[in-house]
Simulated scan of single mutants.
Amino acid sequence: MMRTQRLGREHDPELAAFLDGLGARLPHVLAYHYPFYRNMLEGCGVGSPLYLGAFRDGRLVGLLPGFIRESEGMAVYSSLPFFGPNSGVICAPGADEAAIHDALLGGIMDELTARGDVLSASFYTPFEHDTASHYRRLLPEALEVERFTQFIPIGEAPVWDNTKRRSIRAAQKAGVTVDTEPTEERMRTFYDIYVENCGQAGIPLKPRACVEALAAEARAGGRAKIYFALREDTVIAGLLVLWAGRTVSYYIPCTATEARTLQPGTLLIDRAVAEARAHGLTHWNFEGSPSRESGVYEFKRRWGAVEGTYSIFVHPFREKSVFKSLGAGTLAERFPWFYVYPFQKLDD
């Protein structure tokens, strides 16, 4: 008998044990699914958690993490902010997979429909776990947006190209070193560089509270790891990654503008990949890129990254005219970090 239930903090030990067991075997369990990440999102004001679990014979067998955000009498749901192939229904492949999707997607849709104030619900299919057919079957009115991501298989030691190896040697020769102690001073510099980089590239900025919460997770020896590139004891670059059982996610990189020629970011990725592999992780999740023509995509490709695919399913609870009248600017302002509607379709 399959049943669903909302998961609160009292379920955290069971949730963590479920993810540990599944993540030891499969790469689609990410650090984003763990309670510490939920707490971070809630703490920095992203929204309110709405997590559902599927239970069979009293045992947790499936998870649908999600957040809901309310603004001016309207609400939106996403599994899971901040964008990317980072959630949807999490379960083991096999005979129960369809039933788990039926229970969890049916359960969340019932809850959201009953509220009456929800504009849309968006679901990202998991990293390296093709479950799109379940969403097409269960959400026939949803808009499907196909996307790609990039990752490096690190089960065997990756072989960097000559350019990468030269960059690593050049950084070391220039006196750049790597340290992992996230002191308050280093984290302040890290965030300042990150803000500068986002401004230069036009990338949405994650709140300072997000980075502070993940620094606390790193200090506690948890799933966040932070690497600093130092020159003469000054932070010139940083890299924040998040570990799960098999997959390490490339979360926030940053490099001071004046230090880019020293290649500190290359040194940091090399060190972080080596440590992840030494601890048995097999996938370096490089996340998505704006397009295959972008510099970000090419940067990852030069590291040997290969492509994976995922889909975003957006179920609108309102007519298209409602989204169009609100407009992309208003929706983005009221619901930051949520995929509310495919804006490119508003003018179709």
Rank of each mutant, 00 (worst) to 15 (best):
R3C: 12
L7R: 13
H11K: 07
D12M: 10
L15R: 15
A17P: 08
P27R: 01
V29L: 09
A31F: 05
P49F: 04
G53N: 01
G53S: 01
F55L: 09
L60H: 08
G62N: 04
P65K: 10
R69V: 06
R69D: 05
A75S: 13
S78Q: 13
F82I: 15
F83I: 09
S87I: 01
G88W: 05
I90S: 06
C91Y: 06
C91W: 02
A92S: 14
E97A: 15
A98T: 14
I100H: 06
L105T: 07
G116P: 03
D117A: 04
S122R: 02
E128Q: 14
T131H: 01
S133P: 04
L138H: 03
L138Q: 03
P140Y: 04
I152Q: 00
P153S: 04
E156T: 04
V159M: 03
K164Q: 07
R165N: 05
S167D: 13
K173F: 00
E185Y: 00
E185K: 10
M187I: 04
R188Q: 08
F190S: 01
Y194V: 00
V195Q: 06
E196A: 12
N197T: 02
A201S: 08
G202C: 00
G202V: 02
E212L: 14
A213W: 05
L214F: 14
L214Q: 12
T234L: 15
V235A: 15
L239R: 14
A244S: 15
A244M: 12
T247F: 06
Y251S: 11
T255V: 14
P264Q: 08
L267A: 08
L267P: 05
D270M: 04
A274H: 09
A278C: 08
A278W: 09
G280C: 07
G280E: 03
L281Q: 12
V296L: 15
V296W: 08
R301A: 11
Y310H: 01
F313R: 02
P316L: 02
R318P: 05
E319S: 07
K324E: 14
L326K: 08
A328N: 07
L331V: 11
A332V: 05
E333I: 07
P336S: 13
F338N: 12
Y341W: 10
P342T: 09
L346S: 10
